[in-house]
C-alpha cells in the first residue's frame, strides 16, 4: 500500500516537473498569447471593482475616521432607508422567485406536448424576453398611470367588459405596496420565458415512457404532472429558483422606473451615489448586496437539497 502510494507520488511529481519544464511553458505561452489582451482587460476591471468596493466601503467620508473602518457599515445598519430597502428586497426575492417558477411551470406545461402551431405559440411566449427591460418598465409606467392609465380605467368600470372594482383610480406609483407590486409584476412578466425555457428543457429530458406508463395505469393528467413530472423536474426547478433568486436580489430597472421613491438595494445604490453623492455608502450597499446573494444562494441550495432528499425518500 505504502509502495503504491510512493509510486503514485513519483508519477505525479514527474508529471508536474514535465509540465513545468521551460520547453512546456514556452509552448503553453506560444499557444495562449492571443488570450492575454482579453484576460488583461477583464482582470484589470476585476481588480478595479474589488479595490474600489473594498476601499470605499472600509472608508468613511468623515476624515477623522481612518481606513480600515466599519463605520460605513454601522452607519448603514442604523439608517432607515437601508433597513427598509433590505426588507423590500428580501420580500421582492421571497415573493418573486416562486412567482417566476409558477409562471414558468404554467407556460412550460402548456406547450410541452406537441400540438398544431406549437412553434408559433412558443415563439410568442418568448416575446417578453425580446423587449428591453426598460421598455417593459416604461410600458407599465404608462399602463399604471394615475389617474388616466388603462389599468385605472379598467378597475373603475371604464370599460363595459370588466366590472367596476374601485370607485376611485389608484395612484399606483405613489403607494409603496402597489409600486413594488407592479415592479414585481414587470420583472416576472419579462423573465417568465427564461424560466419556461429552463423548465421545458427539464421536461424534455424526462423519459416519455414513464409518463406513458402512468397514463396506462389510469393516472389523470393532473396526477401525472404532480407525481411523475414534478419529482423528475426537481433539478430544473432548482436551477430556476437559484438563478431567479439572484436576479431578484440585484434587480434595478423595474423598481427604478416604477417605484422610484421606495427603494430596493439596487435603487438605494443609485440614491446614495447620484442623489446624496456618497460613494462610500453606495459601495457598502453593493458589498451587502453581494453578501446577501451569496448567503441566500447557499441557504436556498441547502433547502433544495433537503427537499430533494425528502422526495427521494418518499
Amino acid at each position: 500500500m505504502k509502495n503504491r502510494r510512493i509510486c503514485w507520488e513519483m508519477i505525479i511529481l514527474s508529471d508536474f516537473k514535465r509540465t513545468l519544464s521551460i520547453e512546456n511553458v514556452k509552448q503553453w505561452f506560444f499557444k495562449t498569447w492571443p488570450i492575454f489582451p482579453a484576460m488583461f482587460y477583464l482582470m484589470s476591471f476585476l481588480v478595479i471593482v474589488l479595490f474600489y468596493l473594498i476601499g470605499l466601503s472600509l472608508n468613511h467620508p468623515c476624515s477623522e475616521i481612518n481606513f480600515p473602518t466599519f463605520a460605513s457599515f454601522t452607519e448603514l445598519f442604523k439608517n432607515e432607508y437601508f433597513n427598509s430597502a433590505l426588507i423590500n428586497t428580501t420580500l421582492f426575492m421571497i415573493l418573486g422567485t416562486p412567482l417566476e417558477l409558477i409562471t414558468g411551470l404554467f407556460l412550460s406545461f402548456l406547450i410541452f406536448r406537441s400540438f398544431f402551431m406549437r412553434g408559433v405559440i412558443r415563439s410568442l411566449f418568448l416575446i417578453p424576453l425580446a423587449l428591453p427591460a426598460l421598455v417593459t418598465a416604461m410600458l407599465l409606467f404608462v399602463l399604471f398611470d394615475f389617474p388616466g392609465g388603462h389599468i385605472n380605467h379598467i378597475i373603475t368600470g371604464g370599460y363595459s367588459w370588466f366590472p367596476q372594482v374601485f370607485d376611485q383610480p389608484i395612484n399606483w406609483r405613489g403607494s409603496k405596496l402597489f409600486s413594488m407590486a407592479i415592479a414585481l409584476f414587470g420583472k416576472v412578466w419579462r423573465d417568465m420565458p427564461i424560466s419556461m425555457l429552463i423548465l421545458l428543457a427539464g421536461i424534455n429530458n424526462i423519459d416519455p415512457e414513464l409518463f406513458d406508463a402512468a397514463k396506462t395505469m389510469g393516472a389523470s393528467f393532473r396526477k401525472r404532472a404532480v407525481h411523475v413530472i414534478m419529482p423528475l423536474m426537481i433539478p430544473s426547478i432548482s436551477v430556476v429558483l437559484l438563478l431567479r433568486s439572484v436576479e431578484m436580489w440585484k434587480e434595478f430597472i423595474f423598481p427604478f422606473v416604477l417605484a422610484g421613491r421606495y427603494h430596493l438595494l439596487g435603487t438605494l445604490i443609485d440614491f446614495y451615489y447620484n442623489e446624496i453623492g456618497n460613494s462610500h455608502m453606495a459601495a457598502t450597499v453593493s458589498i451587502i448586496m453581494v453578501i446577501c446573494i451569496v448567503f441566500s444562494t447557499l441557504i436556498l441550495m441547502k433547502i433544495l437539497e433537503l427537499i430533494q432528499k425528502l422526495i427521494v425518500s418518499r
Binding site: W28, A38, M39, L42, M43, F45, I48, V49, L56, S286
Partner: peptide
C-alpha cells in the same frame, strides 16, 4: 490547455458581480 478551467473562471469572474454592484467602482 492545462488550466483551462481556471482561465474560464477568470474570464467570467468579473461578471459574477451584479452590474449595479460593480458600476460604482468602474465609475469612480
Amino acid at each position: 490547455l492545462p488550466g483551462r478551467k481556471v482561465l474560464l473562471l477568470m474570464i467570467i469572474s468579473v461578471r459574477l458581480f451584479p452590474d449595479i454592484a460593480s458600476v460604482i467602482p468602474v465609475v469612480e
